[in-house]
Amino acid sequence: MVALTAALGLSGGVWFAAGVYGWTGPPELGDPRLRNGASVTLTLATVVSIEPERAILEKTPERYVVLGTEPWQVGEDWTVGGTWRDGQIAAEWATQHPGRGGKKGLGVLGLLLVGVLLPVGIRGRPGRWVIRG
């Protein structure tokens, strides 16, 4: 138990360090190493406001300015690909994700479902749970 917990903690720490030192591959959004002209993809972000020629999209906890004239509406979920330029994304393509709200509800249902199933499949006390036949 202690070893596994330590291993999980260590792996998280190593992953964090990998991000700091640039060992996680090409810089992505949110990486301070990201340079002007780099190709970026903002995945599954929500439109929070729309202005002429640009929009603000939020991928919690960050917000990004996206330059472009896609037919987005506030509240919609989009993935946008483009070029990083002076702290903004110049959009070159965009894909809407119309079913994403439903996916969050299904996530809650899925967790509840596992909670209901566990007593069906296991018995006993924590630490000595037995897998039913």
């Binding site: 439903g102 299904l106 899925g110 479902l113 596992v114 199933l117 039913r132």
Partner: peptide
């Protein structure tokens, strides 16, 4: 994929192995 679909894939794949194993596989999918 959504978690309900994940749980279903676990149950579908493992239901022939016994309900305990099926439940554990389903739990592993989430």
């Amino acid at each position: 994929a959504d978690l309900v679909t994940h749980v279903c894939t676990g149950l579908l794949v493992a239901m022939g192995l016994g309900r305990g194993r099926a439940v554990l596989v389903a739990a592993g999918t989430v």
